[in-house]
């Protein structure tokens, strides 16, 4: 579904990605794990074209999307819940969700998806009129995921959904990620530092270090790998 082919991405003169190749098949949950500064977020930002790669190619369903603008890419069916949640603090929960559906005109479909996400996260229904900034961290993460879902993506990019949340909330969010994948058929590309949980929910995984992919395997194999255990699982 998504093929990232040897992309190199820079911030000014600093090279963040040094030839990253990733493949995501339809219906999968794949995870990208790695330490701070490895280039995980940059990979997602490159796919979304917020920080476009300088060389290499990204194909979505066979079509090159490397040269497209961020909004075109959202329009094609890739949406992202960015790192640090980045919800709109001054807009209400419902307005945040409506912004997620910004490019869509089908009112019936939007309503359907709204019902779906409010069903996934009932707390958001309770908080619907509240300003986004007044939500707790966990609720904001739920809102960020819901907002990305409102674009009705075929591929959902999630950047560190566990960031700064209590273990019990993280567990709940990961359960829902799995649910979105199995019930809605949404392909999910998950970037995580919490390798343990990420590998539990995903089918395959990539390990990233200093802007290059160092390992790729099924999630089960990665979780069993001695090196990974030592470096990322803390066992």
């Amino acid at each position: 579904m998504l093929r990232v082919l040897d992309i190199h991405t820079y911030y000014g003169n600093i090279q963040a990605l040094k030839g990253v190749t990733i493949e995501v098949a339809e219906g999968e949950i794949i995870t990208l794990i790695g330490a701070n500064g490895a280039g995980k977020t940059t990979t997602l930002m490159s796919i979304s074209a917020v920080v476009p790669p300088r060389s290499g190619e990204i194909l979505f369903k066979g079509k090159p999307i490397t040269k497209l603008s961020p909004e075109k890419i959202v329009g094609m069916g890739i949406s992202q819940a960015p790192e640090g949640r980045r919800i709109f603090p001054g807009l209400t929960v419902l307005e945040n969700l409506d912004m997620g559906a910004f490019l869509r005109k089908d009112k019936a479909g939007i309503k359907e998806d709204l019902d779906y996400v409010l069903d996934l996260f009932p707390i958001l229904a309770e908080r619907q009129g509240q300003a986004g900034g007044t939500l707790s961290g966990g609720e904001q993460q739920m809102l960020a995921i819901s907002r990305a879902l409102m674009a009705r993506p075929q591929l959902l990019l999630l950047d560190e959904p566990s960031l700064g949340l209590a273990p019990i909330i993280v567990q709940r969010i990961f359960d829902i990620i799995r649910k979105i994948n199995s019930e809605h058929g949404t392909t999910i590309f998950l970037v995580e530092q919490n390798a343990n949980l990420a590998l539990q929910v995903s089918h395959r995984g990539y390990v990233m270090e200093n802007g290059v992919i160092t390992m790729q395997d099924t999630a089960a194999n990665l979780a069993a790998n001695e090196e990974i255990k030592k470096a990322y699982l803390g066992i």
């Binding site: 890419i73 959202v74 980045r86 709109f88 001054g90 807009l91 912004m99 910004f102």
Partner: peptide
């Protein structure tokens, strides 16, 4: 309107707006 709200959204977080597909 949605345009008005997208202005407010843009004021608050440009990167999030881009991720939402707001031009």
């Amino acid at each position: 309107s949605r345009l008005g709200r997208s202005w407010l959204a843009l004021r608050e977080d440009e990167i999030a707006c881009q991720a939402m597909g707001i031009d």
